[in-house]
Design a protein around this nucleic acid. Sequence first.
DNA 1: TGCCTTTCATGACATCTGTCACCTCACTTT
DNA 2: AAAGTGAGGTGACAGATGTCATGAAAGGCA
Lengths: 204, 204
Amino acid sequence: MTKKIQVVLAEDQAMVRGALAALLETEPDIAVCASAANGRDALAAIAKQKPDVLVTDIEMPEMTGLTLAGEVQSHFPQTRVVILTTFARPGYLRRALDSGAKGYLLKDRPSAELADAVRRVHQGMRVIDPDLAAEAWDSGPDPLTDRERQILWRAGEGKSSAEIADELHLSEGTVRNYLSEAISKLGASNRVEAARIARAKGWL
Amino acid sequence: MTKKIQVVLAEDQAMVRGALAALLETEPDIAVCASAANGRDALAAIAKQKPDVLVTDIEMPEMTGLTLAGEVQSHFPQTRVVILTTFARPGYLRRALDSGAKGYLLKDRPSAELADAVRRVHQGMRVIDPDLAAEAWDSGPDPLTDRERQILWRAGEGKSSAEIADELHLSEGTVRNYLSEAISKLGASNRVEAARIARAKGWL
DNA sequence: TGCCTTTCATGACATCTGTCACCTCACTTT
DNA sequence: AAAGTGAGGTGACAGATGTCATGAAAGGCA
């Protein structure tokens, strides 16, 4: 047999990280050469190990998987990236592909697909969840501006317009204007629903 | 060696389920005899297999891990339950223990602890995450009434007072009263923050 | 029987939210 | 130089939200 496919694993939940490593180690042609609990550590491991494939979660402390994918793409292009996440959010998929990820796999999928995805991506193929790809296509791009995103995020945390204005050094009226705009763009009827929709799409 | 510890696994994310099974299978004294994607299927598996230990997630479709723990406790008391979840929520821990669970483990913990927990619980010990137990102790019991919970849940989804009133056949004023009460009990300053706090504590 | 607790309801009030028309100021573009 | 363009702001208004005092009806229990 030729050399095993070297994989680095990035996932913040230690239990899941260990379990995924155990899963990949059951494959005779795959070896997990390092694993990390956040994007920053993963990047350091990649610099040292130069693995064939990175399998990474998205929501992690320090550096998200999406940012990590971008860094890997620009500094270590020989390492292919597979995103492995809970979230079937069109915005996430779009950003993942923009960041150079070659695979996007959901944690809902059968565990056998992980090793498959690693092998395919290693061979230069792309592996994208087909349902999600279709959804991403017809849900369109993120309609929010940066300001709207910042403000909607805080509103979703339960902050009042006045508090948000204070934090961002804006007037309260301006904050209300941005929220109004975001609400109408998302077809919501108030800030809470708008935040919910934006979160579901992966735009927050 | 004596017979292996028989484990049933309940976890809705297929990838994680498969990975956890692979992890447990690496232990020489543990065997995963069945796994299920929701509480209902898990209960059926337990009825058939009569396993020593059930390892279950909390948030699952059809039947949550907490409800499942209660069912197992009353119908199959010889099966000990270990809750394995992402959520460090005092309310979840409390309900888990009330439902007869013998273990409560976070997915943040090192993967080696899972097999340990299974062994200990099998021997009749309890395994509770110590930090979470302390937090649960001083955060007190759920202060919300059923009505307040129902209403706060819907408010957190972005529904207006009028919509909630309609859904629950109450007057709008009554809904506002309950929300006001919930907001003050939780020390929040509006409905959104109140919902956030309640979710974080595991009370929603 | 009387007392207590829950649940639900009103009305009144102050404040917060969402919407809209319109304005300023600093940049680009042409 | 004139005409956009985008970020930010103002003021006004209707409607939603949060608070409080008060009260009716229903069940538990001593």
